[in-house]
Amino acid sequence: MSRRNMSLLAGGIAIAIAVALLSPLASGDPDGLERVAEDKAFIEQAEDPGYEILQDYTIPGVDNEAVSTVLAGIVGVLVLGGLTFGAGWLLRRRRAGREGATGSPTDPQRPGARV
């Protein structure tokens, strides 16, 4: 990966983590759909998922609510950043592999080229 792309990735993830650090300041009021569901009396139709991993953006066992929310946010940021970057990288590599096989001399992207 080029240095410029590396700094884009690092800078962007840092911004996302900074936003996650602010997440305890988020409004706890019901959001748009939840408000309408309460006002129009269909909120009770909501079913529990039946399992919990990081339910409601908290880490189980971390009692401090703000810390728990921030940690859950950072987990989400890192998992999603990695997952999506990985997916894009795979798509890119697959194409580079195909173009390498068919011999596309004008394409600077070859298998193993910097992404």
């Binding site: 884009l8 962007g12 992207q109």
Partner: peptide
Amino acid sequence: DRAVPLMGVMAAFIF
């Protein structure tokens, strides 16, 4: 090429 790191950043930021 540029879109790949940007995809990761956008997913993280939007989350």
